[in-house]
Amino acid sequence: MVESGVRAESSGAASTAADDYLKTIYSHTEWQPKPITPGELAVRLGLAPSSVTEMVKKLGAAGLVDHRPYAAIRLTAAGEQRALAMLRRHRLIETWLVAVHGYGWDEVHDEAEVLEHALSDRLLAAIDVQLGHPRRDPHGDLIPGPDGTIERPAAVRLDLAAAGARGRVVRLSDRDPAGLRELERLGIALDAELEVTASSSEGVVVRAAALGAAALPALPASLAAAVWITVELSV
C-alpha cells in the first residue's frame, strides 16, 4: 500500500521538505522522459542551488534518489513510491477543494501544499470515498491508486502537435494560475476536443469542437505548452 507510513515519514520539517523534493522530481518526468537536473530542481523549488545539492545528497544517502555529480537526478523505487503517495494526497485534496468547497481550479495548488502534510490517512481515505475514487485532479493530473498504480493516456503537448492533429484535452499544467484563467476564458478545459489548424514557434491556432468551426485566437507558445491532448485522433 503506497499510503502506509506516510504520516510517520512526513513528521517534521525535514521530512516535509524531502516529500516536496520527491514530488517535484517525479512530476518533472510524468509527461516527458527527460530527468530533472539539480539546476532545474532548484528553479522549480525556488531555492538556492547549494541548498538543493545538500538535500539531494541526503535523499541519496536515504536511498530515495540516485544522483552522481553533474548528472540528472532519478528516483529509486523507494523514492518513487513515496513520491506517488504524496502526489495521491496532493491531488485528492485539490479535487476535494474544487468539488466540495468551491475553490477555483487555479486556486487549489498552494492550499493543497499545506494540507497534504496535515491530513491523516483515515481522513484522506474518507475524502477518496466521498469523491467516488477519482482518477484525475481538476487539472487532469492523474491520481495514483492506493497501491501506487497509475494509468497515463498517450498524449502530446499542444505546442508540439503538428497542424491537423486532433484530440481531447487530458491535462492542463497548474504551474501558472494566470495561464489557467486564460485557458478557461478561451473555453479550453479538460475533455474539450481541439484541432490544431496551424502551429509554429510563435504560437498555435486551434479550433474547439464545442465552439463551432471558428478558430480561437492564436495561443502563444508558452500557453499552448500548458495543454496536453490525446494522440489517438492525430492525423
Rank of each mutant, 00 (worst) to 15 (best):
V2H: 10
A8R: 13
S11D: 04
A14C: 04
S15C: 06
T16Q: 08
A18S: 08
D19N: 10
L22P: 05
T24K: 05
H28M: 00
T29A: 11
E30S: 11
Q32L: 04
Q32R: 10
P35S: 00
G46H: 12
S51K: 10
V56T: 07
A61K: 13
A61E: 07
A62D: 03
L64W: 00
D66T: 15
D66V: 15
R74L: 03
L75M: 02
A77F: 06
G79A: 04
E80F: 13
E80D: 05
Q81S: 13
Q81P: 00
R82Y: 12
A85P: 05
M86A: 07
R88A: 01
H90K: 08
W96C: 06
A99S: 10
V100C: 13
H101L: 08
G102C: 02
W105D: 03
H109R: 13
A112L: 02
E113W: 12
E113H: 14
V114H: 07
L115W: 13
E116S: 07
H117R: 08
D121P: 01
D121T: 15
R122L: 10
A126H: 09
I127V: 14
V129A: 09
H133T: 12
R136H: 11
H139D: 03
H139E: 03
D141Y: 15
L142W: 06
G145D: 04
G145M: 06
P146L: 00
T149Y: 11
R152N: 02
V156F: 02
R166A: 14
G167A: 05
R168I: 13
D174T: 09
D176L: 09
D176K: 09
D176M: 08
E182H: 15
E182R: 15
E184M: 09
D191L: 10
A192G: 00
E193W: 15
E193Y: 15
L194V: 13
V196F: 02
V196M: 02
A198C: 01
S200F: 07
V205T: 14
A208D: 05
A210H: 14
L211I: 05
A213T: 12
A215Y: 13
A215R: 12
A218V: 11
P220F: 12
I229A: 01
I229W: 02
L233N: 05
S234D: 04
V235P: 06
